[in-house]
Design a protein around this nucleic acid. Structure first.
Length: 479
RNA sequence: CGGGGUGUAGCGCAGUUUGGUAGCGCGCUUGCUUCGGGAGCAAGAGGCCGGGAGUUCAAGUCUCCCCACUCCGACCA
């Protein structure tokens, strides 16, 4: 059994101070570094490589489903932003404005995109004229700016990286299907590639995207019991089309308004990974997005043949995995701790005694279990360990969510279960009235996260007012 | 945006009460010895004390104003 003692004294324990633990990991695992502008951070190579892996997998999926990548400009003229009333009301409080070009004051100020619906709409108005022009299935990988008041690495920064998909369809049915399809893409990605269980659901009226008919989201539960929205997908109906005057001629030779969607995930997913899988020894990365999947640590590397063997194993394994040999002159123990901090899923130790015996030591990050394996069929042994890590972290994350999911039928029950067991997901019935939604938040501290697709009839009365319930809501304290 | 806390070497901190030559640990550099869970010895390098105004013969230390980080709320991916 692996020694479970905490090796890295530099990281604040998550039990002691979860928030400090989180920022410690962001910095010590070399994911981010602050800059002199509040809320604007450097995503360092190791952190960016995680994002590149997320991009690679999702981008391939988007394209497989027929989407094309485009790139919109980053400036939006004020008049354009204001065309859709709900949209501008939602975003105006947090946009950054450009007022000057060089020394010249601009005729009209430009906002730095907080999201690009308006730009896509302006563009669609130019290029969509006939039913033959539809659908357009677009996506872009860019950064956006939202002038947040309080900021945290990955979870809430003033500039962040994301992808935003924007599609436009002839019919509402098609657009609704697209919205649902992309929510499923996100959910599958989180569960299959990030080993992060999510709840799919619809946002309540008060919580939906500014300008949307309906907003869908996937909600994940972090290790500390707080909820994190991991991705969203919006159905716009023809509201934007009407506001931006986008029309097409149908087969029946009639002018029609098309229907739109948008959907996105952000670098916040990296924060979700940290808080879902990390432990007191540092980051624990899902193998599919880990920049390094296997780190080879040569032991007594000055001795004849050790480094050569390490390089040979790397070359052999590189056909199937992302592999690194750490041949720096740090001690082996230092390297063990370093790559645990960085969350590398599998460590391979190779020393003179191993070489003699045609074997090596494999260590899985999430449980620190050591296994001695033969150098024959090594790629198979490593693949097995990788899948053990996936299975292990999935079960651990799922167990945390199950343990922290509570069914409640009264307000008092919500309060007492949260006080007793700590933050988590609360399942409780709701009448559909916004006043009750607000009151639950006010009295118990948990807000509505979503109305899960998977419903359960916990009771027939609203947890707040006692009137007939319409649906079960997932409540939680969110990041 | 409201309420607290913190800014001194790359990191973690002491020094501020009572103004008087800027320190410690880790890390870093060089060399030698080490190497199976953050190695040892030796010699080095590294700072306009977050920024700007004041007060003073003299400011890391006192006063005022900014900025950033951080925690707790409200708002948000």
């Amino acid at each position: 059994m692996a020694d479970q003692k905490k090796m890295v004294e530099d990281i604040t324990s998550m039990e002691v101070d979860f928030a400090k633990w989180y920022t410690d990991i962001c910095k010590k695992a070399e994911l981010v570094e602050y800059t002199s502008v509040k809320g604007c951070m450097v995503i360092r190579p190791y952190g960016y490589a995680i994002w590149e892996n997320i991009q690679r997998i999702l981008d391939a999926k988007f394209k497989e489903l027929g989407h094309e990548n485009v790139c919109m400009p980053m400036f939006i003229p004020e008049s354009l932003l204001q065309k859709e009333k709900d949209h501008v009301e939602g975003f105006a409080p947090e946009v950054a404005w450009v007022t000057h070009g060089g020394a010249e004051k601009l005729e009209e100020r430009l906002c730095v995109r907080p999201t690009s619906e308006t730009l896509f709409c302006e563009h669609y108005a130019n290029i969509v004229h006939s039913h033959r022009d539809l659908p357009k299935l677009y996506n872009q990988w860019v950064s956006v700016v939202r002038w947040e008041k309080t900021t945290r690495p990955f979870l809430r920064s003033r500039e962040f990286l994301w992808q935003e998909g924007h599609t436009i369809h002839a019919t509402a049915e098609e657009a609704v299907a697209e919205t649902e399809q992309m929510l499923n893409v996100y959910a599958d990605f989180c569960e299959q590639h990030l080993q992060m269980p999510v709840v799919k659901g619809q946002k309540t009226e008060s919580d939906k995207f500014a300008g949307a008919v309906s907003t869908y989201a996937i909600e994940a539960l972090m290790h500390d019991g707080k909820a994190l929205q991991a991705g969203t997908s919006h159905y716009f109906g023809d509201g934007f089309a009407k506001a931006f005057d986008i029309q097409y001629q149908s087969k029946e030779n009639k002018l029609e308004y098309p229907h739109q969607t948008s959907w996105g995930v952000t670098t916040r997913l990296i924060g979700a990974i940290i808080m879902t899988h990390g432990d007191d020894n540092g980051l624990v990365l899902p193998p599919d997005v880990a920049p390094i999947q296997v780190v080879i640590i040569p032991v007594a590397q000055h001795k004849e043949g050790v480094l050569e063997k390490a390089y040979a194993l790397r070359d052999q394994l590189s056909a199937s995995f992302r592999v690194k040999v750490d041949d720096s002159d740090q001690s082996p123990g230092w390297k063990y701790s370093e790559y645990e901090m960085k969350g590398v899923p599998v460590r391979l130790e190779i020393g003179p005694r191993d070489i003699e015996a045609n074997q090596c030591v494999l260590v899985t990050r999430h449980n620190r279990e050591k296994t001695v394996v033969s150098l024959d069929n090594l790629a198979d042994s490593v693949a097995e360990k990788i899948s053990e890590v996936k299975q292990g972290i999935w079960e651990k994350a799922l167990e945390n969510r199950t343990r922290r999911t509570y069914k409640c039928t009264t307000m008092d029950e919500i309060k007492s279960v949260l006080a007793e067991k700590g933050d988590g997901f609360v399942h409780a019935m709701w009448c559909g009235d916004e006043a009750c939604e607000d009151k639950v938040k006010e009295e118990t501290g948990v807000g509505s996260r979503c109305i899960p697709f998977e419903q359960e009839q916990i009771s027939d009365k609203c947890v707040c007012c006692g009137k007939p319930a319409k649906c079960m809501v997932l409540w939680g304290n969110a990041y």
